[in-house]
Design a protein around this nucleic acid. Structure first.
Lengths: 334, 334
DNA sequence: CGGCACATTGCAACCGGTTGCAAAAGGACT
DNA sequence: AGTCCTTTTGCAACCGGTTGCAATGTGCCG
């Protein structure tokens, strides 16, 4: 039913190889031939079959895109940017939703079955071993939002979570908060651990500071709300650094539900600066993660890897800045 | 490098056909043979190449998933459900992000290049002709969130937007609102048009009612906020039926920004009941669209279509119900 | 034990392209 | 016109599987 290479070749009165070459960038074909083939192809409405060509070239232009954070609104932005970015470069994302699973085996198998050219693991809650499994299976991998590493086993692109945690801690101190807490994401996530570490390091040493921390079950609204509710029973800190924006929003819902005002009674600072953080009714003070750049860099890196699969893995870290909105009290005007 | 059928055949000392059959459901193979092949395959870590087999069988298990609403948080739920549902059934979603484009041609071409078995168009803002283009190209299509149709050209699964509009209108009237308005999504979207129609029909005839309507640029927070800001300059209705939840949230941000309280000063009702509508800090009264069922049904329909590509297209409509939260004033206690 | 039906297996062609290699064609120069 | 070198083109094998068909093997019957 669909029109094939052979059909075009017949109509144009040339060999199939000629047609194939006419559609291949930089192949050895005369202009005359190319024009003749093009005409026949247009007449028939021919388009090459990507799968068949992938079979021989080993290149499918399929990129596995793996994630597990389908309840964090920032991931809609992540998917938007990844899917757009990939398709602009002629690549196709093949999505794997890991919500129910955490073992890499099934995903590895699946993506190999489809001969993906490379894999992007977009998650800060999957262990580093996860991304590594793809590399060991011979697939180029980029771990977006992964943990920076001096001698990484796979390419990592993300932010310096330790520095972000420190920035949050310093910011809270600068605002004059004394009882401060970290309400983190899932304890097992490298992002959570690193943010906590930075936060603790930055807030250590001041004797008049009361610093505490706890963890939410996930990076989600409900998890943030529930954890903050739990915390409120024991008594409340003056300000919270929440593991990310959606946790912040959940936490603020719990705070307001308990009759507390933000920022008058309690301060909150998030991390990510997802679109929603800027919504008028949220106005979250947060640390901005440069999402666009991270994803651009991830895609660029994937493309590099396609051409040089044995390239030495490296970590790339993007800078984060404070975005002032309305959930922390202002700097005390010295 | 990767292990192929031939490798397994050699190791097992059988023909490649035998191996192929051993991996094919319901093929003619003895148990003994299957066991022998399985053993060899396990030893080598063999898994069939989905693309190669797709080439001969014409079945790739790839499903095109097309959408353009990457700024509406409900679509994160949509993607979560679609990707999970498809992969549970052994199908793989190939995502097309239409944000920049509206012409079906490029998508049709692309998805045909990858020999997708079927296409799901998940959008209420694409014209019916869009989904139809895939059908005309010979691809089974399901248009999720499409417009119901007595004699549909493609399968449509969604809700009765006219009825939803009517339900919203009736609800506002029942609450005693007199100056009511529809703040719709993009004017060109069938969902907007139908919701408006139902809304107008339900509110027509009452002389003491003042009914108006206008349209936002998109189904997004910003669009809802901006349109509401515009409306506020001219003066405000008592209650708004917003095109969907995210528009409602944007509109409420504008209302509160103008010093108006919801629901004390102005009532708001949305449509969808996305997760966020239930967040404590949103608590949006809305009309619930049964997302899980719609998506389940869409996937089921796709699977049916795979087996019977010439099945007569039909519209399937799911029921919607009011979800009471906190953005409309309560029923006047008669 | 022969005969027959049916289940199992292998052969070889094919799915839609790609590509190394050698033959054919074109061009420049003597 | 004849050489020699460079393009351009076609042939045929191959990518990793699938499948119709014929050959072989098996089980059951008389």
């Amino acid at each position: 039913m669909p029109v094939t290479l052979k059909d075009v070749a017949e109509l144009a009165g040339v060999s199939t190889s000629a047609v194939s070459r006419a559609f291949t960038e930089g192949a050895s074909v005369s202009d005359k031939m190319r024009a003749k083939v093009q005409a026949a192809a247009d007449e028939l409405g021919y388009h090459p079959n990507a799968l068949a060509s992938g079979l021989t070239t080993g290149r499918t232009k399929l990129i596995g895109l793996i994630s597990n954070n389908f309840h964090n609104p920032i991931f809609l932005e992540v998917f938007d940017r990844f899917t757009r970015g990939l398709q602009e470069r002629g690549l196709r994302p093949l999505i794997v939703n890991l919500t129910d699973e955490t073992a890499p085996d099934a995903s590895v198998r699946l993506l190999r079955q489809y001969s993906v050219d490379a894999v992007i693991v977009a998650s800060s809650t999957l262990p580093p071993t996860f991304a590594r499994a793809f590399r060991e299976a011979g697939l180029p991998v980029v771990h977006t939002f992964g943990r920076r590493n001096a001698r990484p086993k796979v390419d990592v692109i993300g932010i310096d979570n330790v520095a972000c945690g420190a920035l949050a801690g310093q910011t809270l101190i600068a605002r004059g908060y004394r009882q401060i807490a970290f309400l983190g994401g899932p304890k097992a996530a490298t992002s959570t651990q690193d943010r906590l570490r930075g936060f603790l390091e930055a807030t250590a040493g001041s004797a008049d500071l009361c610093v505490s921390h706890s963890f939410a079950q996930a990076y989600s609204f409900e998890a943030g709300r529930d954890e903050m509710r739990r915390l409120l029973e024991a008594g409340c800190a003056e300000a919270y650094f929440c593991g990310d924006d959606v946790l912040s929003i959940g936490a603020m819902a719990a705070l307001r539900g308990a009759g507390l005002r933000v920022p008058e009674d309690v301060g909150v600072i998030g991390l990510n600066d997802m679109e929603m953080a800027g919504w008028d009714n949220v106005a979250l003070t947060t640390i901005r993660q440069p999402l666009a750049e991270i994803i651009e860099a991830s895609i660029d890196r994937v493309i590099t890897l396609l051409g040089a699969p044995e390239a030495l893995p490296r970590s790339r870290v993007m800078g984060c800045v404070l975005v002032e909105r309305g959930t922390l009290r202002p700097l005390p005007s010295a």
